[in-house]
Amino acid sequence: MKSMFTRGMGTMKHFTLFVVFLLCIAMLMPLTASAAYYNTYSDVATLNNANDSYAAQGFAVGSTYVYSVKINSDNTKAVIYRTKMSDGTTTLMTNGDNGTTYATYLGHANDVVLSTIDGDYYMFVVTMNAGNMSLVKLKYVGTTYYKVGSYTIKYEGVDKSMSGVKITSKDANNLYFLFKSGRTLYKGSLPLAANSGTINVTNGFSLNIEDALVNGSTVPNITSYAFQGFGYYNDTLYVPLTYKNISIVLVYRNISAASGTINADANLSFRITSSAYPDLFEIEGVGIANGDKLWFNTNRRTEPGDTAHDGVHYFNNYSAS
């Protein structure tokens, strides 16, 4: 008969071999990085309601300032605010064509993109209208802007309204645009000097949102979320969606090679679920500043009828550089 000591040593030996086996399996398994998740933000500025323009819409990011458009209830007036990123100083811009502080031709003004052409500064605004005012070109000098152009966007020969716009590149002759309508992205170009004309777009690709992961999980009712404008930086799209007091940002990479339907980055997500603004927390537009923060503007309501809390913000701890 074996002694208790001998049996104990045999059991210990088997246990040790089992532990070694598990360690070997663990070493052979690939390491999976945890997803980067950003769900806090900092306030930079409050956007007022000049000319009864209560609804924040288009948003664009420059090197020193961000620009936010707000519209009135029937899309007949739009105002533009310039916010200095370093200290939040916000200025209501002036319409240099008539001396007022509003424009009557920007429609819903759902998205904005900036460009420098021959040393001058321009904004391109999608109005969400079809026809010859579907894209409007503004020249701005400091806090004053002037209407200098407008364009018709057509897809397969038919006038097309767009809800988002960004410029992906520029060469000696042309600007190259990415437009968005719903979850579909379209490509088009425009001569640098053109202040009117038609942009004939082609179908670029579509966004898969149903399978997108936010903090590691799909969003159950994501098809109920409203699309807004979008951000573009370093071949990457940042796409905000909102449902009541929840806003998420989906990230899509390698846009220059995109075709068909593309999937969101599973390892990078943003979400704000706001108890401070339970009636609405709506991210309208997003943009990267200087390869650093992800900036955005909002419509925020504590209750129906609240008009005091729209603002400019950035996500904490995120850097795209």
Rank of each mutant, 00 (worst) to 15 (best):
T143K: 12
T144G: 12
Y146A: 01
Y146T: 03
K147L: 02
V148A: 07
S150F: 04
Y151R: 04
T152I: 04
I153S: 05
G157M: 11
M162V: 05
S163P: 00
G164S: 10
K166H: 09
I167F: 07
T168M: 09
T168D: 06
S169R: 13
K170M: 15
K170C: 09
D171A: 11
N173I: 02
L175H: 10
L175R: 12
L175P: 03
F177V: 01
L178A: 12
L178Q: 06
F179H: 11
F179W: 09
F179N: 08
S181Q: 14
S181V: 00
S181G: 07
S181N: 15
R183Q: 00
R183N: 00
T184V: 03
T184Q: 14
L185R: 02
L185K: 00
K187F: 15
G188D: 14
G188A: 08
G188E: 15
L190F: 01
L190S: 13
P191R: 04
L192G: 00
A193E: 06
A194G: 04
N195C: 03
G197V: 06
G197N: 03
V201G: 09
T202S: 15
T202L: 10
G204E: 13
F205G: 04
S206K: 15
L207F: 07
I209P: 07
A212L: 13
L213M: 11
V214N: 15
N215V: 01
S217P: 02
T218K: 13
